[in-house]
Simulated assay, not measured.
Amino acid sequence: MLVDPPTAQGLGLLTQLCDIRHWAWLWIVCGIVTSGSAFLRVGRDFYGFLAALVPPTVWAIAYTAAVVSGEYSRGIYVALWYLTSHVGVILWASRVPEHSVPHMPRAAREGRPG
C-alpha cells in the first residue's frame, strides 16, 4: 500500500482526512502492536486484539459511509467482508480460551527426583 497504493474508491471518508499512503501506516503500526502482543503472557494480549480490530473497523466504516452517501454502492459488499472475515474472526479469536503451559518444578528441570 505504501509503494503502489490501490485505488481509493469507496474510501472518500478516509481520503478527506489524509492520503491513502498515510492510512497504510495505520495497518503497519497496528500490525506491529498485534505481532508484539502475540509474545505476551496469556491474558495480557488485550491490546493486540484491540490493535488488530482498528484497521478493518475503520475500513468497514468508510465503505459503509460510501454506500450511505451514494459514492460507492458496491461498498456494502466490501464493508460486510471486512466485518465478517476480519472483525468477526478477530472478535472470535479474542474469546477463545487460552491455556499456558504449567511451569516444571525445579527438581524435575534439574533431573533430580521430586
Rank of each mutant, 00 (worst) to 15 (best):
V3L: 14
A38F: 14
V33P: 02
G10L: 00
W25P: 00
P102C: 05
A107H: 07
L83F: 02
V68I: 11
S35N: 05
G43Y: 07
I28K: 09
P6H: 05
W25R: 05
A65D: 09
S73C: 05
R74P: 07
P97F: 10
G88A: 03
P102S: 08
G12A: 06
W59Y: 12
H99F: 10
L14T: 01
S37L: 05
S69K: 12
F46V: 10
P6T: 03
V29C: 11
V58P: 01
R44Y: 13
V101C: 15
A93W: 07
L26Q: 06
L14Y: 02
V101T: 14
L83Y: 02
V68D: 11
S94F: 06
V58H: 04
M1C: 13
A24C: 06
I90T: 09
G70F: 04
C18S: 15
F49H: 11
I90R: 04
A107S: 15
L80Q: 07
L13V: 02
L91P: 03
S35D: 04
L2C: 06
R112W: 12
A8T: 12
A107M: 08
P5Q: 11
V29K: 07
A8Y: 12
V78F: 02
A65C: 08
E71D: 15
W81L: 13
S69D: 13
S35C: 11
V67T: 02
Q16C: 05
P113E: 15
F46W: 14
E71S: 07
V54T: 05
P5R: 09
L50A: 15
L40E: 11
H99R: 15
I61K: 01
F49A: 08
M1W: 11
A66P: 00
S35G: 10
P102W: 08
E110P: 01
R41G: 12
A66E: 01
G36V: 11
L40R: 13
T34A: 15
V42Y: 11
W59T: 00
P102R: 10
G43F: 07
V33C: 07
T7V: 09
P55V: 01
F46R: 10
G111H: 10
T15N: 03
R74Y: 08
A60L: 00
A38E: 13
L50T: 07
R21A: 06
P56Q: 03
R106Y: 08
I90M: 08
S37G: 13
L53H: 03
V33M: 08
R74K: 12
C30E: 04
V54S: 02
V68A: 13
A79S: 05
Y82A: 01
G75S: 04
Y72V: 02
D4S: 07
L53M: 06
V42Q: 11
P105L: 12
G31W: 10
S73T: 13
A79H: 00
A52D: 01
T7F: 12
L91V: 12
R112I: 06
G48Y: 02
L40Q: 11
S100R: 14
W23C: 00
A65K: 05
L91A: 09
W27Y: 14
V33K: 05
L17W: 13
V33N: 06
Y47N: 14
L83W: 03
S69I: 05
R109N: 14
